[in-house]
């Protein structure tokens, strides 16, 4: 019963993404990041190693720190936007769908977007490396793994952003909070506490601007942190929705 309701909710959330303006954000932001990253890689040839790892560092440096979290926040805010319009909350809360289904369905839809974003980012990385930077061969498999790990690290961030966007009726404040979260995440990661801050997980997962694997031997704590934060934020959102009264 729960799974059936969840599946129906996921399909409903998917339908909100058809032809939505968030796809423009999805295409443009990684494109700008890739253009800068490759330009910086070509210009800083004296200080950056001329290989795929060097290019990965330049591509992900600012993308993971400042831009991926606000993008995820825009995805999350978009999916709650319809509920915040008019009297739609009354309609949503009176539907025979468990509240947690609603949250999980939105998480699934935003995760799909985040996964596509990471794939698009990786394709741009590959294309820029071959066509613009002229790097030989193909990128190491580790780069693809780091991109996928970035999508996994995005799950707790998406769960938190969904919670914030649900609580805050405005579209913009949660996006700003994500920008602040990314900045604080940088401070957490630079002090070695990246696993304790959801936005820090993005930097660790994507291995941003590092020549070595930041998570070497730390995969279980990373997975536990992702799962723990996701559970916490989803449970909080579900509990809040359950208590909310129909206005």
């Amino acid at each position: 019963m729960f799974l059936k309701a969840l599946w129906r909710s996921i399909r409903a959330e998917d339908s909100k993404l058809r032809g939505a303006r968030v796809w423009a954000v999805f295409f443009l932001i990684p494109l700008l990041s890739a253009a800068y990253g490759t330009f910086s890689f070509c210009y800083n040839s004296a200080t950056v190693t001329r290989d795929w790892n060097g290019l990965w560092g330049q591509h992900t440096l600012y993308y993971a720190l400042f831009f991926f979290a606000p993008m995820a926040a825009i995805y999350a805010a978009w999916l709650w936007r319809l509920e915040h319009l008019g009297h739609n909350w009354t309609l949503v809360l009176s539907m025979p769908v468990p509240p947690l289904c609603l949250v999980l369905a939105k998480l699934a839809a935003t995760f799909k977007l985040a996964l596509f974003t990471q794939m698009w980012m990786w394709l741009l990385f590959f294309g820029c490396g071959k066509l613009w930077a002229g790097l030989p061969g193909v990128p190491p498999a580790a780069c693809l793994l780091w991109a996928l790990r970035g999508a996994v690290a995005a799950v707790p961030v998406l769960a938190l952003q969904l919670l914030l966007s649900m609580l805050w009726r405005g579209f913009a404040p949660p996006v700003l909070l994500a920008l602040l979260g990314g900045v604080v995440g940088f401070l957490f990661v630079s002090n070695g506490w990246g696993l304790y801050w959801p936005y820090g997980l993005l930097v660790l997962g994507m291995n941003a601007n590092q020549g070595y694997d930041l998570l070497a031997g730390q995969a279980p704590p990373f997975a536990a942190a992702c799962a723990g934060f996701t559970f916490l934020f989803c449970a909080a959102a579900g509990a809040w929705l359950k208590r909310r009264d129909i206005a």
Binding site: V22, I29, L32, Y62, I74, V175
Partner: peptide, 16 residues
């Protein structure tokens, strides 16, 4: 707001 925030994010990226 999606257009505003998207353009804002793009401008931030280009500006930075």
């Amino acid at each position: 707001p999606v257009v505003l925030l998207g353009v804002g994010l793009g401008c931030s990226m280009c500006g930075f």
